[in-house]
């Protein structure tokens, strides 16, 4: 039996919004420690990992590990039926073929129950090694979203170059070029920890998709090292995170 309650449906909506442009369907792995999701996009260019610890939830019960295969479009449709400030309870029986979502209004005068059919999805798990990133950048999530959006106008590829003094985002296309540099700020809105300078090239379309997680977090962490995927991490308060990994582009 699995049961998890959140006091606000809005956070669940934000989490699903951060996933649904990259994944159509995915499996939530629920255990007594919390909820995890790991999946590659259809093109196998990026990987997304969601981790929510059990103490993120107002109530959390998971007597046996369950895997819930979900169609994220359908889940979005159900979440649209709820107000952001409704409390939401997700329930699934052992070996269930559906989950139940119950929404309760803030004043408790309205409850609405929905059932969503589960999918049997082939699951492929990848082991993600602990990586020592040569460059770790923290910046406001809204700033990162703005940069990704602005650069997408110029080129499919975005070059990220991180050095001791600054991080530079560049795009170069037929229309022209764009270069955006950020230095570490005294207010620590932007911080750079650089052991070795790194320059890598990435598909801007994916970076833009990752920024769908912006409403979840004030800050974003970016990790870069030579010849490894880019890490873009959005913390979910102190209880978990969404991490996106993006394979670099290499010279042909």
């Amino acid at each position: 039996m699995f049961e998890a309650r959140l006091s606000s449906t809005l956070t669940l909506k934000k989490i699903v919004d951060a996933l649904r442009d990259i994944l159509n369907q995915s499996t939530l792995d629920c255990s007594d420690t919390g909820i995890q999701l790991q999946a590659m996009d259809n093109s196998h260019v990026s990987l997304v990992c969601l981790c929510l610890r059990s103490d993120y939830f107002e109530k959390y019960k998971c007597s046996r590990n369950v895997s819930l295969g979900l169609d994220l479009k359908s889940l979005t449709k159900v979440l649209k039926c709820a107000n952001g400030d409704d409390a939401v309870t997700i329930k699934a029986a052992d070996k269930a073929d559906k989950i139940e979502l119950s929404f309760e209004s803030a004043g408790k005068e309205r409850t609405a129950d929905y059932e969503l059919r589960l999918l049997n999805l082939d699951q492929e798990h990848l082991a993600i090694p602990e990586t020592e990133y040569s460059c770790v950048i923290h910046m406001p999530a809204s700033e990162f979203a703005r940069i990704c959006r602005d650069l997408a106008v110029f080129s499919e590829s975005v070059v990220i170059a991180c050095s001791k003094n600054c991080i530079k985002f560049s795009a170069n296309g037929e229309m022209g070029s764009a270069n955006i540099k950020l230095s570490q700020t005294s207010k620590a809105e932007v911080t750079l920890q650089v052991d070795e300078p790194v320059t890598l090239s990435f598909a801007g379309r994916y970076l833009n998709t990752f920024t769908r997680a912006t409403p979840l977090s004030e800050k974003v962490k970016i990790g870069m090292a030579a010849d490894v995927p880019l890490l873009v991490e959005y913390p979910i308060e102190d209880y978990g995170y969404i991490r996106y990994y993006l394979a670099p582009k290499v010279d042909d």
Binding site: M40, H44, H125, L126, A127, Y245, K249, V250, D251
Partner: peptide, 14 residues
């Protein structure tokens, strides 16, 4: 010209 690599090539299957 740059070529997109696959994320699966960086991580091992479990």
């Amino acid at each position: 010209q740059s070529k997109q690599t696959s994320i699966a090539s960086f991580f091992t299957k479990v």
